[in-house]
């Protein structure tokens, strides 16, 4: 994550010196991670903490080796739910934002409802959806989509409206049509706002999928977390949490790379 953020801030790094510079930038973080893991192992060993209470890093590593197949077979459903939820939640939010920007009445009618829906904790909604849609993939995808939906809606509406009056004057002098203004100006100027929301969604969609799996599911990383906890299989629990975090980081990185490819300009630089 830190790496991605750094690169988007300073995109011009070429050649051997750039590479060594970047490597040197990462060194403190690498040392810190290794140091913390070592400290964790030391504390577990020094105070003889029982494995079921808090396993050491070596126990977790062993779990990756022994339960690797279990982890992998539960990883795919969660990935599938999170990604489908990400796609549908964001897609609906984007389309709704486009509608809101073109139709003030629609915005006045549905925006408050969207805000109200957002105030309901997702954990409270999950059982309701499980009751309605059963224990298959559908409720998980819906919950993952719901959790992505709101930040994207808000940011996309803001982004589509983030066009300066002067730019609108320019488009009027050029006799540009509404759709030309939309495609040539609004979509482009909304991209930084959209990607800010997509980065949030890339990690929250994983949370949504896992929370949904806690409630009435026998597959996925969420179900594995519950199962490992009840059976005191703490190394497996830790390994599962690690995989879930890794999934979120990978999705975040994909979105960040897409952002760096699509947006080569910064909104604040130019009026």
């Amino acid at each position: 994550m830190a790496d991605i953020a750094h690169r988007s801030a300073a995109p011009v790094q070429h050649g051997l010196f750039g590479l060594t510079d970047r490597f040197r930038d990462k060194l403190p973080a690498a040392f810190a991670v290794v140091g913390l893991i070592a400290a964790w192992q030391f504390v577990v060993w020094a105070f003889s903490v029982p494995t079921y209470m808090a396993p050491g890093p070596l126990d977790v590593l062993r779990s990756f080796r022994d339960d690797g197949w279990t982890l992998l077979s539960n990883f795919w459903p969660t990935l599938f739910e999170a990604m489908l939820g990400f796609v549908f939640g964001n897609l609906i939010a984007i389309l709704l934002a486009v509608w809101f920007v073109h139709n003030r009445t629609a915005e006045r009618a549905f925006y408050p409802i969207a805000v109200f829906m957002h105030t309901i904790p997702i954990i409270a909604v999950a059982p309701i959806l499980v009751l309605i849609f059963g224990s298959g993939y559908l409720p998980k995808v819906i919950i993952a989509a719901l959790i992505c939906f709101f930040p994207t809606l808000v940011n996309m509406v803001r982004g589509l409206k983030a066009v300066t009056p002067a730019t609108l004057d320019l488009m009027r002098v050029l006799s540009a049509s509404k759709s030309e203004i939309f495609w040539k100006v609004r979509i482009q100027s909304s991209l930084p706002f959209l990607f800010a929301a997509l980065k949030i969604a890339s990690t929250t969609c994983v949370i949504g999928a896992i929370v949904a799996e806690w409630i009435g599911s026998n597959f996925g990383l969420g179900a594995l977390i519950i199962e490992a906890t009840y059976n005191f299989r703490s190394p497996l629990l830790y390994a599962t949490v690690f995989v879930a975090a890794l999934l979120a980081v990978v999705l975040f990185s994909i979105v960040s790379v897409a952002e760096a490819r699509l947006i080569k300009w910064k909104a604040s630089d130019v009026h």
Binding site: T164, A166, L170, Q188, L191, W265, A267, D269, V270, H271
Partner: peptide
């Protein structure tokens, strides 16, 4: 021509 250049930054 406006006071701001009003160029599209992208």
């Amino acid at each position: 021509v406006f006071q701001d250049a009003t160029l599209l930054p992208w």
